[in-house]
């Protein structure tokens, strides 16, 4: 298993984070050893094992289609760093 610096760069880019040189080195080494450990699972024959969709033995949890006003709605919106006319303001998006 060879997890490279390019892999770390790619993941960092997808996550929109910037890494320092040291961080890149560290993460490459750490992630490589983690993946190598997990890779042990590949030694098992899992052909007859269903992929796990959920870790809890629970299914079919529903709510009825009813509108319930949320008491914290306003408070939740006010967490925005910038609001104008009720809108969340974000850096300009050009399409």
């Amino acid at each position: 298993m060879a997890f490279t610096r390019q892999d770390v760069d790619y993941i960092a880019k997808l996550a929109r984070i910037t890494l320092s040189d040291d961080e890149q080195k560290n993460f490459t080494r750490q992630l490589d050893s983690i993946l190598e450990y997990v890779n042990k699972l590949n030694e098992l024959d899992t052909d007859s094992v269903e992929p796990t969709a959920h870790i809890l033995p629970v299914q079919n949890v529903f709510r009825e289609d009813e509108v319930k006003p949320c008491a914290d709605s306003k408070l939740a919106v006010e967490q925005s760093p910038e609001l104008r006319d009720g809108l969340f303001i974000v850096p300009p998006v050009i399409e």
Binding site: R84, G86, F88, I89, V90, P91, P92, V93
Partner: peptide
């Protein structure tokens, strides 16, 4: 999208 270029609004 606002015309002023002062950012976009999200609803």
């Amino acid at each position: 999208h606002s015309d002023a270029g002062a950012g976009s609004g999200v609803d």
